[in-house]
Design a protein around this nucleic acid. Structure first.
Lengths: 253, 253
DNA sequence: ACCTGAACACCGTTCAAGT
DNA sequence: ACCTGAACACCGTTCAAGT
């Protein structure tokens, strides 16, 4: 056979295939259970070819992480279309974050792993750059939302805090609560999903009340907001994550 | 040589030695860089002996994690002796948490790893039980502090929230902010330590204002409180973590 | 009763040989 | 120009042999 020259699309498609395969393995075996041998076994390419795409196992992990951030960015975009106040839309974004964590816990957790030296040092520059770009795609819309809240006079920037810090502190709160709960108990039953939700919800409400982002939680029923968000924006995902009552078109199982 | 029968103290001392060695390796090589071979090389015992103490590499990691929780519990106790309001003492506990994270970042991060299935499934029951007990030793004093705040009328439990949830949400906020920042930038310069501090500080203030834990941040200068905490309770540790001005007895280097 | 270290299985990574 | 898979180094774990 004469040597073929692969175009960029083919390469990207194969890379995506490898990332999807890796994610599937991680769903059953966890991050520690992901080995290159297992990937090779599920895929019609050899080890050498995989190493043409990813410089190391860590590079592959960063690839999986980036793929997760990309779908998360999509969820954020959808969340921001929610018809409500700026604070409600922030709540929608945080709900999207929770959904993503419930549906892909190992991928969610990769975000911190990706920040450790042992991982980032062994990640290719290309994928590292992609990672930073994706962080921007996640942060950007949130910063715009803060801006909007400020022009709407729903939020006054607290003393000595920047917009970036507002976004960071909200992210940190959601992240911390989710990270600590996600591995705490047995497998994800519906009950579990709901307990989660209320912790994230409480944390967000306290934090936003603390920064005086109006309407405050005693001025508005945010429980109703979350229900509306789940029903109007994320019915499918909410059902998958253990809130079957939110699904409008469930299939018989 | 006739066979010796080891008493419990010898065994515990050796176990501690192994844990200390593992921690030293992790400080330079990271968690991923910890191998059983490296431990063997630094210690006068053979592999088999190490496996008499720890059922697996993961069991050893949980051992390192537990050791960290134990020193953290000591720091918490000291923090609670701070002479101030209940909210100031909570701040002192969070400051202790930050110090511990800055001084032992890999050990700090182990707390989430220890919650993943891949680690806890391969941890001995004895060490798992020890882990839960240590969680209690960390949570207990915080619950007492919340109780005290309630009897002092400095805090009214928000609607539909338990004391446990108050403690959890504070923990989650500090944890999230620290976890996201700790691996974000270059090595730990003094400057870095201070940036950290202000993020954690902002987050805690917003959260505590949100739950109306008095005195609120506009009623009291909590910057001064943190400085007093650093100077009066943790001068040595603050200096090591990159705030040299807080050390009252620095040695020439 | 306890310790030792050779032996084994597994896994990440490379690269000479192939098309 | 690209792919393959044997080969290598490394690492976690075990266990027969020793004292």
């Amino acid at each position: 056979m004469s040597p073929r020259i692969l175009d960029n699309n083919q390469l990207l498609a194969r890379e995506q295939e490898l990332i999807d395969t890796a994610l599937q393995i991680m769903e059953t075996d966890g991050t520690a259970g992901l080995t290159m041998d297992k990937v090779v076994a599920r895929v019609p390419y050899s080890k050498g070819t995989i190493y043409n795409h990813f410089t190391s196992r860590e590079d592959l992990l960063t690839g999986v992480c980036n793929a997760g951030m990309s779908v998360l960015a999509e969820l954020f975009s959808r969340a921001l279309t929610f018809n409500g106040t700026t604070r409600e839309r922030l709540l929608a974004v945080q709900y999207a974050y929770l959904l993503h964590a419930l549906l892909q816990p190992t991928q969610f957790m990769l975000v911190i792993s990706a920040k450790t030296a042992s991982l980032s040092e062994r990640t290719s520059e290309r994928r590292q750059a992609e990672h930073y770009q994706l962080e921007g795609r996640l942060m950007g819309p949130m910063l715009k939302l803060v801006d909007e809240a400020i022009t709407n006079r729903e939020l006054v920037l607290p003393k000595q805090m920047t917009k970036q810090q507002i976004v960071f502190t909200n992210w940190a709160g959601s992240f911390g609560a989710i990270a600590l709960l996600i591995n705490s108990e047995g497998k994800c039953s519906g009950r579990q999903g709901l307990a989660f939700q209320s912790e994230i919800f409480n944390h967000a409400n306290l934090l936003l009340d603390g920064m005086q982002w109006h309407p405050l939680s005693h001025e508005m029923d945010y429980y109703k907001s979350v229900e509306r968000i789940a029903q109007e924006i994320f019915p499918e995902e909410s059902a998958q994550a253990g809130n079957p009552q939110y699904s409008q078109r469930m299939k018989a199982n």
